[in-house]
Structure formats: C-alpha cells, structure tokens
Design a protein around this nucleic acid. Structure first.
Length: 259
DNA sequence: ATGGTAGACCTTCTA
C-alpha cells in the first residue's frame, strides 16, 4: 500500500499537475495540504474518475486538507481534538478500509513565522494538541501513519545551510523539541527507517532560485506506529515533480507499506 | 543588501 503526502499549494491552481502525478504514481492513499478552498470548491470529480474516494476539510483562501483513497474512508475526523476557537483546517484523519486497515492522519502543521509572535505561539499550541492526540492513537496499537507538511526541519542535515534558518520558526529549538517529543511517543520517521540520508529535501522555495541552487529543506514527513513500521517497505521523494511546469513548492512523499 | 515568487483575492496576507 502506497500512502502519499503532498502540499499542493492550491488544488485548483494545481489540478492538472496533481492529476498528472496521480496517473503516474497511482497512490492508494494521498493526503493533500494547502488546498486553499472550501469543501464545495474541491474538484472531487476528476479524482473520483480515477477511482478515488474523497474526504475534504477545506477552508477559504488558506490551509485546507484532504484525503483520497482507493478504498472507502471510514471513521473520518476533521480537526484535532480540543480545538475551541481554532478555525484553521489543518488535520484530517480516516481509517483506510481493506483486509488490513490502516489509520492515516494528514496534517498541515502551522508555519509559525515570524517567531516571537502569536503565530509562533499558535504553532507550539497546535503541536501540543497533535502530540496529545498521537498519544491516544498510539494506545490503539494499530497500524497508523501520521503524514503531512510538518513545517519542522528536524536536523541540521535536513537543510543546506543551517545558519540561514536560525531565526526561522521551522528550525527553532521549541519546534524541533516538540517534533522530537512526538517521535518519542513511539513513532518512527519512515525516511530514517528506510535508510534515507541527509539533504533529502521535500520543499524548495519559489524565491531566490532555491530549486536551481538545491537550497531545500525536509519538512514533509511520514511517522509510523510500531505496527506500521514493522511493515515498511520503502520511501520515495518524488523530486522530479518540482521541475514540472507550474510546480508546487513541495514535492510528494510516498511511503510503501506491506499492508 | 531584509531582496526574491506564488496563490487567493481586492489590497494585503500567508508562505
């Protein structure tokens, strides 16, 4: 089973590109982030024509997440628990039905820039809620994949020039510490477990020739419960997609599980 | 040097 995540930076601006990748990669499950539209504006029909079931947690202009699956999506959750007053659409979760069901959480973690503002405080609060929810999910002791745009650079080797990121919310000790705390609940970074090395980027900024200079960062992740990690076959970063016409600034990350 | 680009949308915010 191939489970993908991709921050598409507007599903409607990116539709032909996203469909082309779906035809090429044929993921069983795909979590999309930054769809930047409300539920009714999500172009579900072309994906349904490709054989996908679609669940959307949309929002106008900003954020928005979706999950697509070849088999029915069950037990769908939209938003993290304890979300009083949080109107950002950043989390969607479902159980992927089949002979070996797997629970998948698709997340778009807040960017948090600039640091020292309410945006950064919101990022850290959101991460606390994510970690609490992950603890509850891990207690189920079932195959679980938490994947998406985490907006966290875990290690120095996950960027080209660490010094350039010192003032950035994606690289703050608090952000990286909260990410590590999430891992320490008992999750496995699929990239590391599959033998992925340093400088394996999933995002290149549109600005300042970041792609041409390979000035990227690894911020899209797939974290596995023990029951999922035991069945990990491999991980792919579909870097070639960044060179396509009208690309997203992120590329797809694909996890292959023996499920 | 605080730049640069992309998307949604209405003048600016977010990334």
């Amino acid at each position: 089973m191939r489970i993908a995540t991709w921050n598409v930076n507007s599903i409607n601006a990116r539709l032909e590109t996203v469909l082309a990748w779906f035809r090429e990669a044929s993921p069983d499950v795909a979590c999309l982030q930054e769809i930047k539209c409300v539920d009714e504006k999500f172009p579900a029909e072309p994906f349904e024509s490709l054989g996908y079931n679609v669940a959307v947690h949309g929002q106008k202009t900003y954020n928005g997440v979706a999950m697509l699956s070849k088999t029915p999506l069950e037990d769908v959750r939209r938003g993290l628990p304890e979300g009083d007053g949080d109107d950002h659409a950043r989390y969607i979760e479902a159980v992927i039905s089949g002979p070996r069901p797997v629970r998948v959480g698709g997340l778009y973690l807040p960017n948090g820039n600039p640091i020292g503002t309410e945006k950064f405080a919101y990022k850290l609060r959101w991460m606390e809620r994510m970690n609490a929810h992950a603890r509850n999910l891990l207690a189920l002791e079932e195959p679980l994949v938490l994947t998406g745009d985490f907006n966290v650079i875990p290690e120095d080797t996950d960027c080209e020039n660490p010094a350039a990121w010192l003032g950035d919310a994606l690289f703050q000790p608090e952000s990286r510490g909260a990410f590590r705390a999430l891992m320490w609940l008992g999750l496995t970074d699929a990239h590391q477990a599959a033998g992925g090395g340093p400088h394996a980027y999933t995002f290149w900024d549109y600005q300042a020739g970041a792609w041409q200079r390979n000035n990227g960062i690894r911020i899209d992740h797939a974290l596995l419960s023990p029951q999922a990690a035991d069945r990990l076959r491999g991980v792919e970063i579909h870097k070639h997609v960044r060179a396509w016409e009208k690309p997203s600034d992120h590329v797809p990350l694909v996890v292959d599980l023996d499920l």
